[in-house]
Design a protein around this nucleic acid. Structure first.
Length: 734
DNA sequence: AGCACGCCGACT
DNA sequence: GTCGGCGTGCTC
């Protein structure tokens, strides 16, 4: 990839009535379908059009001239051009690039780029209502509404109903009657725009130098920079300057965050710097916000978008910068539907637009680090904590030498540290990446283990709702009074700790402490997350017991102690990236300690004090750890020194899944240097009632894995009842 | 992805 | 004899 790739301006191609055009539809079809431009219409590439498909009408995108694969007599006319901004040419190219790379259909990628049909219509003018005539049949409710409506400005129907204390139906009836008439409401004023002219904060010398380099990159075509620095080093302030530069140049910026639902503190920081919040994009947006934001982005009216990975597919016409914050975060990998890695696709999107991408992390992924060291990426290093706060001291607690008391999970040293921390008026965080009360429930008499009926997984006890849950599907059941296998009464015992059980232990140890349980079960949605942040900041909480949900980039000044309850969790299991991920997660958790004036302290409980991950954390020697990982991957030809692609074969009938997996193995490509492993039972051999087998393709670095897999799949026939899912560059289990 | 077409069990 | 179950296949 060339450094100064400046794409030529793509001029949309015009098609007049009668022209035959290719329309890409948001469906998993092999390619675009051909249509004819109807009389009286004219369209151009990128235009959104409504077309007939079978008995349905769908919105698609004009992709170019018809391919001519079907006879022209079969071509149907397009119905209309949709009143919406066209997709920029680069968005169409991006869709096709991602589809080719991920071995998905272009239509399923397009689906992530265009919203549903109803969200594409121009916004309806908001209507308010005022009184016009006496109602035909005056009822008390109707009279009340009319009295309310007679005073004050025109208001929406729901508001009149609320003020009058009646249902909306009453108001609607009055509108139908003609007793109320509509008046267009003054368009709601657009929210204030972020202002790049506002003065930025004082930057340290290192920050200023990094910001300078990013500003310089802003106008200089495609580049990738890695902004690397520990928690609290001030990375965010640095890339804010790059955003300011993009805004000053009239270009849009996109910031990808791993968990947008938890971005309340991030939004606040942004608003402090730029005087207004950016546009926000994630999968849980309501329909109205979604439509408004999509249009604003497509019109180029949104200077900054912050979002989860799906924001990458928004149709920015003037994108000037992409930032991927916490670039190492595994949640950037989309696993269902089209399987893609948002960080990698962000780099591709930047290259297609000829703009800079900035990857940000305190614990960069090995891939990114290798790219940075080889010079493919620019390395911007922020050396130390911005405010001169010393990094937290990390102590290793060897659980073999100093075990927790019977029935407990906190070693004596951690118990003491907890007591001291609270006595000193500070806060503590206990980290355990396990939801629920206990990960396994078994019968003391017969040894039966309670498992999910439709997954290869144990049921996890959740004591708060009082039930056993499967963490892989929606299954749950009440905790049975007797063993379902041998019938023994009161014989079921909880094995191992979850955060709920840990909270119980802390409650017994420190009865006066105010506890907060923070898991995805208790933190549903942005409001709950914001409330959590507020309560911790207001010191309404002494001890936080949480899963990885609290590992994110929060900043809590009073938090001085972090206890990692099980540093070994996630280290076993033969996963290619287990060590790397555990290191990143624990380093991130450790970074929560001592971000205010008081120094922080981190205690790591482990059975493996000699494990490279534990040693690297204790000595804060990230680079040596990464170097060791790199050597191992290089020696075994694993990514980034080799390439992987996974096929997951799944279906409800085990025999046909097996048959399909074997057929794929028989028809595997025979290419020098390319090996096929499997079929083997997939990590979750049964998931949601579907049997799963896995094949793994290993190729040398630079191997054209996507093309190989595409040809492979084309050459093998599998039963229609069996699904084959492709995962290029899988990050999960090996 | 939907939707239609098609071939086998429990209802009027 | 029909209503309806979801397996299979097509949609420019």
């Amino acid at each position: 990839m060339s450094e100064n790739h400046t794409p030529v301006a793509d001029v949309p191609r015009r098609f007049d009535a009668g022209a035959e055009i290719a329309v890409l539809l948001p469906l998993p079809l092999a390619g675009a379908y051909d249509y004819r431009v109807a009389d009286g219409l004219a369209v151009a590439t990128g235009d959104l059009v409504e077309v007939p498909l079978g008995t349905r009408r769908l919105i698609g995108v004009v992709a170019g001239p018809a391919a001519g694969a079907v006879g022209e007599t079969r071509l149907k006319p397009i119905r209309r051009r949709v009143e919406a901004p066209p997709l920029p040419a680069v968005s169409l190219r991006f869709v096709e690039w991602v589809a080719a790379y991920t071995v998905a259909s272009p239509g399923s990628v397009l689906k992530m780029t265009i919203p549903t049909a109803d969200a594409l219509e121009p916004p309806k003018p908001a209507l308010g209502y005022v009184t016009a005539a006496a109602p035909a049949r005056p009822t008390p409710a109707r009279t009340r509404v009319l009295a309310i409506a007679a005073e004050g400005p025109a208001r929406p129907a729901v508001e009149l109903a609320r003020e009058a204390g009646v249902g909306v139906g009453v108001v609607r009836a009055l509108i139908a009657d003609g007793a109320l008439v509509a008046r267009p409401l003054r368009r709601e004023r657009s929210p204030p725009a972020p202002d790049w002219r506002r003065p930025g904060p004082a930057l340290s010398a290192a920050q200023a130098a990094a910001a300078d380099r990013l500003r310089t990159a802003a106008g200089a075509g495609f580049s990738v920079s890695l902004l690397d620095g520990v928690a609290g080093a001030g990375k965010t302030e640095v890339y804010f300057e790059a955003i300011a530069a993009a805004m000053a140049a009239g270009r849009q910026s996109l910031v990808l965050l791993p968990e947008i639902a938890l971005g309340a503190q991030w939004l606040e920081r942004f608003a402090r710097r730029f005087g207004a919040e950016p546009a926000v994009w994630h999968s849980e947006l309501g329909a109205a916000v979604r439509r408004r934001t999509w249009r604003a982005v497509a019109e180029g009216a949104t200077p900054v978008v912050v979002g989860a990975r799906s924001a990458l597919f928004l149709p920015f016409p003037r994108l000037g910068l992409i930032v991927v914050d916490e670039e190492h975060d595994p949640s950037f990998k989309q696993e269902d539907g089209v399987t893609y890695h948002a960080r990698d696709m962000a780099v591709v999107r930047a290259r297609l637009s000829g703009i800079p991408a900035v990857l940000v992390s305190a614990t960069p992924s090995l891939e990114t680090m290798v790219n940075a060291r080889s010079g493919r990426y620019r390395l911007l290093h922020l050396p130390d904590r911005h405010a001169g706060v010393p990094p937290p001291a990390i102590e290793v607690l060897d659980l073999r030498a100093d075990p927790p008391p019977r029935g407990g999970f906190l070693a004596p040293a951690l118990r003491t540290a907890l007591e001291e921390t609270l006595a000193g008026g500070a806060q503590a965080l206990l980290f355990l990446n396990r939801r629920g009360y206990a990960p396994l429930t078994l019968c003391r008499r017969c040894g039966h283990r309670l498992h999910c009926p439709s997954c290869t997984a144990w049921l996890v006890e959740h004591r708060l709702p009082g039930r056993l849950q499967c963490h892989h599907c929606g299954f749950f059941r009440p905790i049975p009074p007797a063993c379902p296998d041998c019938g023994a009464e009161a014989s079921l015992v909880a094995c191992g700790p979850g955060v709920e059980r840990l909270a119980e232990e802390v409650g017994a140890l420190l009865p006066a402490a105010r506890l907060l349980l923070a898991t995805s079960d208790t933190l549903t949605g942005p409001t709950a997350a914001a409330e959590l942040v507020r309560r911790i900041e207001a010191h309404e909480v002494d001890v936080i017991v949480g899963t990885q949900i609290v590992a994110k980039g929060y900043h809590f000044p009073l938090l001085t102690l972090v206890g990692v309850v099980d540093a070994d969790l996630g280290l076993s299991g033969g996963d290619l990236r287990a060590a790397e991920r555990t290191f990143q997660l624990l380093a991130q958790v450790a970074g929560r300690a001592g971000r205010g004036a008081r120094p922080g302290r981190v205690l790591l409980q482990t059975h493996m004090p000699g494990h490279p991950v534990v040693r690297a954390l204790a000595t804060a020697d990230r680079d040596r750890f990464l170097a060791a990982e790199e050597e191992e991957r290089r020696a075994t030809g694993m990514p980034p020194f080799g390439r992987l692609a996974a096929l997951i074969v799944s279906g409800t009938d085990e025999a046909s899944v097996d048959a399909a997996a074997r057929a794929l193995a028989r028809g595997a490509p025979r290419i020098d240097g390319v090996r096929i492993l499997g079929p083997a039972p997939a990590p979750l051999a049964v998931l949601r009632g579907r049997h799963r087998r896995r094949l793994l393709l290993h190729a040398p670095a630079g191997g054209a894995v996507s093309g190989i897999v595409r040809r492979w799949l084309r050459s093998v026939r599998v039963a229609a009842s069996v699904r084959v899912q492709v995962d290029i560059d899988p990050i999960g289990f090996l």
